[in-house]
Design a protein around this nucleic acid. Structure first.
Length: 877
RNA sequence: GCGGGGGUGUCAGAGUGGUCAAAUGAGCAAGGUUGAGGGCCUUGUGGCUUAGUGCCUGCGCGGGUUCGAAUCCCGUCCCCCGCACCA
C-alpha cells in the first residue's frame, strides 16, 4: 500500500466534498475547537508543531463524528518581529517573507491531514484583518481605555531606533555588538487592562482550565491589600506602597526604582555624577536582567521623613525596585525583608528590629538574614506588644486617621504597553496636528494602510517614509503627521477567535449573530507559555468588547487544554539552531503520515512533554501493517458474546478516553482490540467498521481507504461514532477467556523450562480453593457498588482487625449486603471448568499431547496442594 | 529572585491512596518461520527461588501520616518552563 498516495487521494476528496466546512445553519449543537494562533516562522513546521495540531485535529474529528456542528479554523499571527529582523538582516521584505512562510505552513498542515475549515483562513497581516484592530483601538480609546504615558525603552544610537528586549544581548545591540544600549523614556500607548483587574481575577474561578494555569493567572494579576504611606522628601509628599505597614518603625532607608521617571528630582547636585554613573551601569529595561543582577544602588542625596517616627532616613536609587509596581519606591526594612537586608549589608545601613519571633530575640548585629516570620512588635512606640498581623491593620487605621496614609488594593497586573516602534505591525490610527494636538483617525478613513515601500535598517521605517507620515489633520484640514508606532501583535491575537466566526465580513469585525452562535470557544488548545500574557489580554478584550455591546458572554475560552512540548531525541526543545528538528514530510515519506500521527498521539498523554524517537515510530508502523492485514481475514456475520464484549467495551473505553484527551490510552485499547481480532479465525464486518471509525481521528487517511475497501460509499469522516451497549458487555466471558489463555501460556512456560519440546500428557488440576480468585472478583464487584475507601473505613471501626490488613480482604464478603452477588461468582467455577474442557481438543492439538482435566478433590497427587488459586495446576509427564 | 511544572524499570512513558513488580511501545535475549539477513510470530526481560504458589528489594534522596504510599504531608537535591518590546 502506498501511503503517500492514499493520503493525497483522501485529502483531495475531503477538500472537494467540503466535509470540514462549518455552517451556521445546523440542527446539531455547535462546538468550537481552536488551537492558539500560530506565528508562521520562516523555518517551517516541525514535528513539535505537528503534534500540537494533531491533538486538536483528533478532537475536532471526534466531535464531528459524535454529533456536533464543529468549527475548527486556522489562521496566522503574521505580524511581528522575526519577519522584520529578516528584513533587516537578509533584505527580504517582511510581507514577502511572511506570506511565503504562511504558504509553507498551509501546505505542511494540509499534508498532515488536519481537518480545518480552510474557508475560514485568517492572516493578521491582511488589511481586511488589521483594519479591525484599528477600529477596536478607536473604540477602546473612546471608552477611555487607552492613554499615553512615558515609559522606558531600549535605544540603539547606531540603529537610531528602539530595540526589543530580544534584540538586546548583554546590554549591547544585536546588530552592533560594541554599541551600548541606552534607556530612553518615550511617550507610549497603554491600554487600561487594570480597569478589569478585579473581574479578571474573580472570573478565573468560573473557568474549566487546568488548575496550574488558573494559579498562574491569579499570581499574574497579583491582587494584594496594602497601605499607601506618605513620606516627606524635600518637603514634598511621596507616596509609597507597602503590604507590611507593621514594620514602619523599622524603616532605615528608602529605595526608589532606577527607572522611576521622577528619580532625578531627588538627586542632589553632589550626588548627580554618581547616580548617572549608576544609571549607565544598568543597561537593559528588562526586569529579568535586573533581577539576575546583584543588588546595586546609589545614594541620591535626599532624605525622607518617616511619618510616624519623624526619623530622617536616606533615599537610595536601586536596581531591585520595580518602577511599574506600587509606587516605584519602597520603604526598606532590612530586619524583616531579605532584599532590604542584603542591600543594607552591602551599603552598611543600620538594621532595626521591630518584630520579635517570641522564642528568641533578634540581634541586629548578628543576623545573617532577615526575619520574615510573624511575631510581636517592639521598638514601635504605642504599637509595642501587638501581634504583627493585627499591627498591619492598626497602623494603617492610625495613618488614615492622621491623613498620613491610606489602605489600598494593589495589583501586580500592569496596564498593557501596546505601542511598538516597529514597522511590521498594525499602524496606530492617530494623527498629530500642531493646532489640534492628538486626533484619532475617523472611522470612515480606516484603514490606515501599512505602506509597502519602506527602508529597513535606518531608523524607524514608518517614520522615514514621507508619504506615510505627512497627512492632513482630520479636524482642521491643516498639515499633520501620522503616528508611526504600531501595535503589539498581542492585540491581533486578542480577538482573532471572534473573527473566525465571520471572517469574510467587510462591514463589521463580525456579525452579532455569528459570534453569538459560535462563541465562546469550547476547547482551546495551546501551550502553557501563554498562561499569562495572551490569555489575560484575550480575556480582557472579551470583557471590554462585551461592555461595548458586541456580545453578551464574559469569557472567551470555556475549556483550556495545555499540550506538552515535543523534544528532540537529544532531550532538548526542537529547534533549528540545535539541529534536532524532525520534519513531518521526511517521516511521512518513510512511514506515512498516519503512522506518524499514531505515534505522536500514542507515545504519551497529549499534555506531557515527550521525546521524539525514530525507533519508537517503528512500533506504530508495525501496528499500521497489522491493521491492514487484519482486513484480509475471513469475515463472518456471526458474533459471539466474547466478541460482543470486546467490541462494546472497546467502544466504551475509547470514547471516554478521547473525550478526556487520554489519546495514548485510547490507542492502547484500540491496539489490544486489533490484537484480539487478529488472533481470531473470523471477525465480523461490524467489528472492523467500528474499529476503523474509532481509529479514524488518529489515522484518517488509512481508515478512509480501508473503509472504502469494506464496500462503503459514504466517507468515514461523515459517519456517526459507534455506540456501545452496556448490556452486551459480559465481564465473565472475558474472565474465562483470560483464564484459558493464561493456561495456554502456563503450558508454554513449562515447555520452555523443562526444555521438553513434546509433552506426552498434561494433567490440569483444578484447585478446590478458588478463594483468591473469588476475592478479586468480589472486590471488583464491590467497587462498582461502593466506594472502596468507605468499606475500608467501616472495617477499621472494628478494632480487632487493625493489625491484620491482609485479612481485611477475606472479610469483605461479610460486609456485602447485596444478596446473590457471591453465588453468581461461585457459579463461575464450574463454568470455567467446563470452558477448559471445551478447549481441551484445541489445546491437545496445539501441543500434540493428551490433556486430562481433573478436580483437586479427585486427585491423589500431592502436588495438587500447590494448585494456584485461580489457575489450574499442571502436571507434566 | 518571583511564579509554575516535573524526577517511575535499559529507554520513551502509563499509573496520583488498596486488584502494582507496575499498562503500552522501543530495546535486549531465547525459540519458531526463512537458503541467510530483514521482516513476521511466540515467549522472556528487578533479585532470590519454584514446574506453579512464595519471599526480598523497588517509583530522585531523607523523614512522617496510614491497616496500606509511586500516589498524601514535611524537609532536601536535581531538571525544565514563564516573567510583560519573542510570539
Amino acid at each position: 500500500m502506498d501511503f503517500n498516495e492514499i493520503e493525497k487521494k483522501w485529502q483531495k476528496r475531503w477538500e472537494l466534498a467540503n466535509v470540514f466546512e462549518a455552517k451556521e445553519e445546523s440542527k446539531k449543537k455547535k462546538y468550537y475547537v481552536l488551537e492558539m494562533f500560530p506565528y508562521p516562522s520562516g523555518s517551517g513546521l516541525h514535528m513539535g508543531h505537528a503534534r500540537n495540531y494533531i491533538i486538536g485535529d483528533v478532537y475536532a474529528r471526534f466531535k464531528r463524528m459524535t454529533g456536533w456542528n464543529v468549527l475548527y479554523p486556522m489562521g496566522y499571527d503574521a505580524l511581528g518581529l522575526p519577519a522584520e529582523n529578516a528584513a533587516i538582516q537578509a533584505g527580504k521584505h517582511p510581507k514577502i517573507f511572511t506570506l511565503n512562510a504562511i504558504k509553507n505552513f498551509i501546505k505542511q498542515q494540509k499534508e498532515l491531514g488536519l481537518s480545518y475549515d480552510w474557508n475560514r483562513l485568517l492572516k493578521s497581516c491582511d488589511v481586511e484583518y488589521y483594519k479591525w484592530n484599528q477600529y477596536f483601538f478607536l473604540k477602546l480609546y473612546k471608552k477611555g481605555l487607552v492613554y499615553r504615558k512615558k515609559a522606558p525603552v531600549n535605544w540603539c544610537p547606531e540603529c537610531n531606533t528602539v530595540l526589543a528586549n530580544e534584540q538586546v544581548h548583554g546590554g549591547k545591540c544585536w546588530r552592533h555588538t560594541d554599541v551600548d544600549v541606552e534607556i530612553k523614556h518615550l511617550e507610549q500607548w497603554f491600554i487600561k487592562t487594570t480597569a478589569y483587574a478585579d473581574e479578571l481575577l474573580e472570573d478565573v474561578e468560573k473557568l474549566d482550565w487546568p488548575e496550574r494555569i488558573k494559579t498562574m493567572q491569579r499570581n499574574w494579576i497579583g491582587k494584594s491589600h496594602g497601605t499607601d504611606i506618605y513620606f516627606k522628601i524635600n518637603n514634598q509628599n511621596w507616596r509609597i506602597f507597602t503590604t507590611r505597614a507593621d514594620t514602619i518603625y523599622g524603616v532605615t532607608f528608602m529605595v526608589i526604582s532606577a527607572q522611576h521617571p521622577k528619580l532625578m528630582e531627588l538627586v542632589s547636585e553632589r550626588q548627580k555624577k554618581e547616580v548617572e554613573a549608576f544609571l549607565k551601569r544598568i543597561k537593559s529595561t528588562s526586569e529579568k536582567d535586573i533581577e539576575e543582577l546583584e543588588k546595586d544602588g546609589v545614594f541620591t542625596g535626599s532624605y525622607a521623613i518617616n511619618p510616624l517616627t519623624n526619623e530622617k532616613v536616606p533615599v537610595y536609587a536601586g536596581n531591585f525596585v520595580l518602577a511599574e509596581y506600587g509606587s516605584g519606591m519602597v520603604m526598606a526594612v532590612p530586619a524583616h525583608d531579605q532584599r532590604d537586608f542584603e542591600f543594607a549589608k552591602k551599603y552598611k545601613i543600620p538594621i532595626k528590629v521591630v518584630i520579635e519571633p517570641g522564642e528568641y530575640s533578634l540581634n541586629p548585629e548578628k543576623m545573617s538574614r532577615a526575619y520574615t516570620g510573624d511575631g510581636t512588635l517592639i521598638n514601635s512606640g504605642e504599637f509595642n506588644g501587638l501581634n504583627n498581623r493585627d499591627a498591619i491593620e492598626e497602623i494603617s487605621k492610625y495613618l488614615e486617621k492622621k491623613k498620613l496614609g491610606k489602605r489600598t488594593v494593589q495589583y501586580k497586573l500592569r496596564d498593557w504597553l501596546i505601542s511598538r516602534q516597529r514597522y511590521w505591525g498594525t499602524p496606530i490610527p492617530f494623527i498629530y496636528c500642531e493646532k489640534c494636538g492628538l486626533v484619532p483617525v475617523p472611522e470612515k478613513d480606516l484603514p490606515v494602510v501599512l505602506p509597502d515601500d519602506v527602508k529597513f535598517g535606518e531608523g524607524n521605517p514608518l517614520a522615514t517614509n514621507k508619504d506615510f507620515v505627512n497627512t492632513k489633520c482630520p479636524a482642521c484640514g491643516g498639515s499633520a503627521k501620522r503616528e508611526t508606532d504600531t501595535m503589539d501583535t498581542f492585540f491581533d491575537s486578542s480577538w482573532y477567535f471572534l473573527r473566525f466566526t465571520d471572517n469574510k465580513n467587510d462591514k463589521e469585525p463580525f456579525s452579532k449573530k455569528n459570534v453569538t452562535y459560535w462563541m465562546p470557544v469550547d476547547t482551546y488548545i495551546g501551550g502553557a507559555e501563554h498562561a499569562c500574557m495572551h490569555l489575560i489580554y484575550a480575556r480582557f478584550f472579551t470583557k471590554a468588547l462585551r461592555d461595548l455591546g458586541y456580545f453578551k458572554f464574559d469569557e472567551p475560552f470555556t475549556k483550556l487544554y495545555n499540550q506538552g512540548m515535543l523534544h528532540g531525541e537529544d532531550g532538548h526543545v526542537m529547534s533549528k539552531s540545535r539541529g534536532n528538528v524532525v520534519l513531518p514530510e521526511e517521516i511521512s515519506k518513510r512511514f506515512g503520515i498516519d503512522a506518524a500521527r499514531f505515534f505522536l498521539m500514542f507515545v504519551a498523554a497529549p499534555d506531557k512533554d515527550v521525546l521524539w524517537s525514530d525507533k519508537g515510530i517503528q512500533g506504530s508502523f508495525r501496528f499500521v501493517h497489522k491493521l491492514i492485514s487484519l482486513f484480509d481475514k475471513k469475515k463472518s456475520t456471526e458474533s459471539d458474546s466474547l466478541l460482543d464484549t470486546k467490541m462494546h467495551k472497546t467502544i466504551r473505553e475509547v470514547t471516554m478516553k478521547i473525550e478526556n484527551f487520554q489519546y495514548n490510552l485510547a490507542l492502547i485499547d484500540l491496539m489490544e482490540f486489533v490484537k484480539f481480532l487478529s488472533d481470531r479465525e473470523k471477525v465480523t464486518k461490524k467489528c472492523l467498521e467500528n474499529l476503523l471509525l474509532m481509529l479514524s481521528p488518529f489515522c484518517p487517511h488509512l481508515c478512509e481507504e480501508l473503509w472504502e475497501k469494506l464496500g462503503n460509499v459514504e466517507m468515514a469522516v461523515t459517519q456517526n461514532w459507534p455506540e456501545y451497549d452496556e448490556k452486551k458487555i459480559d465481564e465473565r466471558a472475558e474472565a474465562i477467556e483470560e483464564l484459558v489463555s493464561g493456561l495456554r501460556s502456563n503450558i508454554l512456560d513449562i515447555q520452555r523450562l523443562t526444555k521438553k519440546k513434546r509433552l506426552r500428557k498434561i494433567t490440569l488440576i483444578i484447585a478446590k480453593d478458588w478463594k483468591s480468585k473469588l476475592m478479586k472478583s468480589i472486590k471488583k464487584e464491590l467497587e462498582k457498588i461502593y466506594d472502596v475507601g468507605e468499606i475500608m473505613k467501616n472495617i477499621l471501626k472494628n478494632k480487632d482487625l487493625k493489625d491484620h490488613s491482609k485479612d481485611i480482604q477475606k472479610l469483605l464478603p461479610k460486609l456485602v449486603k447485596k444478596p446473590g452477588l457471591i453465588p453468581r461468582i461461585v457459579l463461575a467455577q464450574t463454568e470455567e471448568e467446563a470452558e477448559i474442557n471445551k478447549r481441551k481438543d484445541k489445546l491437545e492439538k496445539e501441543f500434540c499431547c493428551e490433556i486430562e482435566v481433573v478436580r483437586e478433590q479427585d486427585s491423589k497427587e500431592t502436588k495438587a496442594k500447590h494448585a494456584m488459586p485461580g489457575k489450574p495446576a499442571i502436571i507434566v509427564e
